[in-house]
Design a protein around this nucleic acid. Structure first.
Lengths: 140, 140
DNA sequence: ATAATTGCAAATTTTTTGCAGGTTC
DNA sequence: GAACCTGCAAAAAATTTGCAATTAT
């Protein structure tokens, strides 16, 4: 488990129990909506409030600790900021799975960063479909 | 301007003034949030309600007439369903611009559709950065 | 010690719902 | 004329805000 207290301090944020807790559950589960986080985190720290989660998600995004993964037809999920990757998103159950970028994605990104009229900062490649579990469920 | 009445009927939906109107403003502006649509559409048809927009956006997505473009840090926008393309999204002003897919995106998509554990349906490549206008604004 | 952070409650904003009246085919 | 659709108003859900009490450094 990463040392989130240090990570927070490096970004000039105080390492409160709440923040570390939020980051730990996100690390553990990978991709979580605000509500997912709330449910998990209150198991350990029942008084942790939704307002605190909202405030911190915003703050941690500003500090590039968290990244939002907006999803068509569902609520956004949040993940720890990490090296560029793609997402498999299940349109049935909403599960998000990371997928390493292929070589071609770098080619594309590089080519697009040449575009003079748009200063490219970040890419997000989201692949929608049906995950293994839901395929099995559908079949039956 | 496309004949949206026909498009709606092809999908088994009644061609109401409201629906055609919603589709026309989206066609004209390219990418619009619910609120954008409401503001535009009420200029022509002041009594058109938000509830109608919400109901129809859902319905038209189910019928593959509209596509949601979810955007990190901003509200989703909606566009007419069309051939695969990428989006340049300005993180300052929220403007969305379409960008044709490069050849490599097809290679990637094809390669990923071989993955046995995920039945790939749709891709969404979103490129975040600063648009020309906002670059100029920043510089000054 | 002090500046930042939390948690509550209230306010605001966004989205959904039910239904009576109106419209499309 | 039957089924569908709209617009209202109310309800529900999601997010933000202000502030007094608490906590991290």
């Amino acid at each position: 488990m990463r040392d989130f207290a240090v990570l927070l301090k490096e970004n000039g944020l105080k390492a409160t129990f709440q923040r570390v807790n939020i980051l730990e559950v996100i690390e553990k589960h990978g991709h979580m909506s605000v509500e997912d986080i709330y449910e998990e985190v209150t198991k350990v720290h029942p008084s942790l409030s939704l307002a605190t989660i909202y405030k911190n998600i915003i703050l941690m995004q500003e500090n590039a600790i968290l990244t939002e993964v907006p999803i068509a037809g569902k609520k956004s999920k949040y993940e720890l900021a990490k090296a560029d990757h793609m997402h498999f998103i299940c349109t049935e159950c909403g599960t998000v799975e990371d997928k390493m970028c292929l070589d071609q994605t770098d080619v594309i990104f590089h080519q697009l960063s040449e575009e003079k009229h748009f200063k490219l900062k970040q890419r997000q490649v989201n692949l929608y479909g049906i995950c293994e579990k839901c395929q099995i469920k559908e079949a039956s």
